[in-house]
């Protein structure tokens, strides 16, 4: 529950360097803070404000717009069951009801052991594979009620640890731009025409 760790601070600096203006890095940095703590703490948001050069209120302003940022602790696994139009036509609502019964919490609730937060969500782009869900943003397609129960058992027993990281960890592969290959962030104040365009124009004239 804190500011970014030393390792994460180094990562944050690397991410910041990719953007022409530091505030552009805010959403990726909010994800990094959420990855560190499992949710978004006020301390972390204050730290990001320093890094990006805006007020903590502006960081909160951005964070509060986006649904993935959790400003309260959530379960180790956030289960998003889709109940939008395509899924609801083939059992999405029933799947959410079943999930509520299995987990013993209502839509939006977290189990007493802190393992699961259940959310009914809208379109997660798997409409042909309905009804679908995500566990920490990893998909399960055409989910039957039995398969849901099995998933919950597997997650509880740690059998999915290799595939589904704890909440907050999104992509486990990060982009790294090697210094010797980097073209560099292009600041908006720079007024020059790119070299390859200028060269092509002088060829043509």
């Amino acid at each position: 529950m804190a500011r970014l760790s030393r390792d994460n601070l180094a990562l944050a600096q690397e991410i910041l360097a990719r953007y022409p203006r530091p505030k552009s890095a805010l959403i990726p940095l909010l994800h990094l803070a959420q990855e560190q703590d499992g949710w978004l703490t006020e301390d972390a948001m204050e730290h990001l404000a320093e890094l990006v050069g805006v007020t903590p209120a502006e960081v909160l302003g951005t964070a509060s717009f986006y649904e993935m940022f959790k400003r309260r602790p959530v379960g180790t696994y956030v289960i998003n069951v889709c109940t939008d139009i395509a899924c609801s036509l083939v059992g999405g609502d029933e799947l959410l009801e079943h999930a509520e019964e299995t987990l013993g919490v209502r839509d939006g609730g977290t189990t007493a052991d802190g393992m699961f937060t259940l959310q009914g969500v809208q379109c997660i782009a798997a409409c042909t594979e309905a009804p679908c869900l995500q566990a920490n943003y990893r998909y399960a397609h055409r989910v039957s009620h039995d398969e849901f129960d099995q998933l919950v058992d597997d997650l509880r027993a740690g059998r999915k640890d290799a595939e589904i990281p704890r909440h907050g960890v999104l992509a486990r592969v990060r982009q790294t731009i090697p210094a010797e290959r980097a073209a560099g962030a292009i600041v908006p104040e720079g007024q020059s025409e790119p070299a390859w365009l200028a060269a092509a124009e002088s060829d043509a004239s």
């Binding site: 940022f69 999104l170 010797e180 290959r181 070299a195």
Partner: peptide, 29 residues
């Protein structure tokens, strides 16, 4: 692609240089 010289500085030995930055959203239609 960066390692193979397809992205970044002087792509494939040319004067074409561009960084492609992967950016994540956070849930907003």
């Amino acid at each position: 692609a960066y390692a193979a010289g397809y992205v970044g500085k002087n792509i494939l030995g040319s004067d074409f240089s561009v960084d492609v930055v992967l950016h994540w959203g956070a849930g907003a239609y």
